[in-house]
Amino acid sequence: MSFRLNGVGLTHANGFAALKGITLLAEKGERIALIGPSGAGKTSLLSVLGTALEPTDGLAEVFEFDQNFWDTSAIKALRARIGTVHQSPPIPGRQRVVTAVLAGKLGQWPAWKSLASLVYPLDIPGARAALERVDLADKLFARCDELSGGQLQRVGIARVLYQQPELILADEPVSALDPALALATIRLLTADAEACGATLVASLHAVDLALGNFPRIVGVKAGRIAFDLPSERVTVPMLHELYASEGEQLPIQAHEPHFLSQAPANDAATRAKCC
């Protein structure tokens, strides 16, 4: 088991209930796409999984920890095993790419190593290997403010790959990228998660990206799970029902919708480099 949510509810400080009775179980290595209209609760759900927010109801278990780990030192050990890809990469512009990638392991390194790496990056080969997987090895020593938005997003992914988490969470990881890059980035994420045997949960704005690249689709609407199905069993009427609040059009990435599943880019080389 990777995580188990049982009747989880989340009520924000202002009294708004963003999640209600969420029950969701994921085995190790599953790849799950969260879809749903904006405001449905996708970010809230990922925050609960990432231990950024504590559920106000129900039981949340990640790996062998349940929510009682809150406020204990165990939470750091748990968090070191969860990697998060953010919508806009949370990396200071003045930092060098190598340092930004190495920061992924701060939760695992001893203090001396983290300190020394500020002066001289201690694991350059490791950072390079992670960057090679996102095709950015030549930017190893560049400063992050010299990169384009898409490159920076891939640095964020490289950091998560370097962290080698067992659970990867991604909150709309590609909504700031152009369609071609978005597709490539999603393929990269799914391929790497698969190669490492990590569980991947990604919220996506574009339905076609979700259906084309993820075996399991969870539709979220108004804080509840609307459906939880293998991607080939998700139908167009279901999607229209899910996005009813956002009008006739389904949010998609490509100009022509093609819901055919594509084989994820997953070559032997990626697998070999991993872990």
Binding site: L78, R79, T84, A103, L118
Partner: peptide, 13 residues
């Protein structure tokens, strides 16, 4: 959120 201790999150982030 990736498990870094507060001090290092400050220094790196």
């Amino acid at each position: 959120l990736a498990g870094a201790p507060g001090g290092f999150a400050f220094l790196y982030g």
